[in-house]
């Protein structure tokens, strides 16, 4: 069995053009694996048919977790473990706990969300990137088509990519 993955790589040089090209190429019956761009293009993920990200839900959950953890810590230490009267206040002095409760929520949200982001995109320090074209982080917009997922021949796909505005079509194998 051949283990190498074979890709056709369309190179575009304009962000608006690649956005239109995604719809064109898809309508011609070609399955696009992914598009790589040097900066975010609004609507590109929708055009590619990616599902809406659930990162905000994760962030909210981590925020709730942070709030619960930090309020538990404060009530455990100030109310259960070593109650002390401070300034004549209640042991459980809720208004005084608000600033730290807020900071804890923010801390958990930020770190939880960013960790989720890194894990879900499998990004980690020292990871070798799967680069289709080195210029995709500079000024080129790269459309990768996995040949294994497409029935059309390479020359057919190449024609479709070029018709949609690709300035180059290359072959990339992993």
């Amino acid at each position: 069995m051949d283990l190498t993955e074979r890709y056709l790589v369309g190179v575009y040089d304009d962000d608006e053009e690649v956005l239109n090209a995604v719809t064109e190429v898809k309508n011609s019956g070609v399955k696009i694996e992914e598009v790589y761009t040097p900066f975010p293009i609004h609507g590109l993920d929708v055009a590619l048919g990616h599902l809406r990200t659930r990162i905000p839900i994760a962030a909210f959950m981590f925020g709730c977790l942070g709030l619960v953890c930090i309020v538990s810590l404060m009530s455990y230490t100030m109310y259960f473990d070593w109650p002390m009267i401070i300034g004549g206040k209640d042991y459980f002095a809720l208004p005084d706990f608000i600033p730290i409760a807020f900071e804890g929520t923010v801390l958990f949200t930020a770190f939880g969300m960013v960790t989720t982001f890194l894990v879900s995109n499998s990004l980690w320090p020292g990871k070798k990137p799967r680069t289709f074209d080195l210029r995709s982080t500079d000024d080129k917009f790269i459309m990768a088509v996995n040949m294994a997922n497409n029935r059309k021949s390479e020359s057919e796909i190449e024609t479709i990519l070029r018709a949609s505005g690709a300035i180059e079509v290359n072959v990339k194998q992993f």
């Binding site: 790589y36 975010p40 590109l44 990616h50 905000p56 960013v114 799967r130 680069t131 982080t137």
Partner: peptide, 21 residues
């Protein structure tokens, strides 16, 4: 750079992460 490639899916999530941060 954590193996960043700039795929459309990553960018879509990234934009949310920046916005929420």
């Amino acid at each position: 750079s954590l193996g960043w490639t700039g795929s459309a899916k990553t960018w879509a999530r990234y934009e949310y992460v920046s916005l929420i941060l």
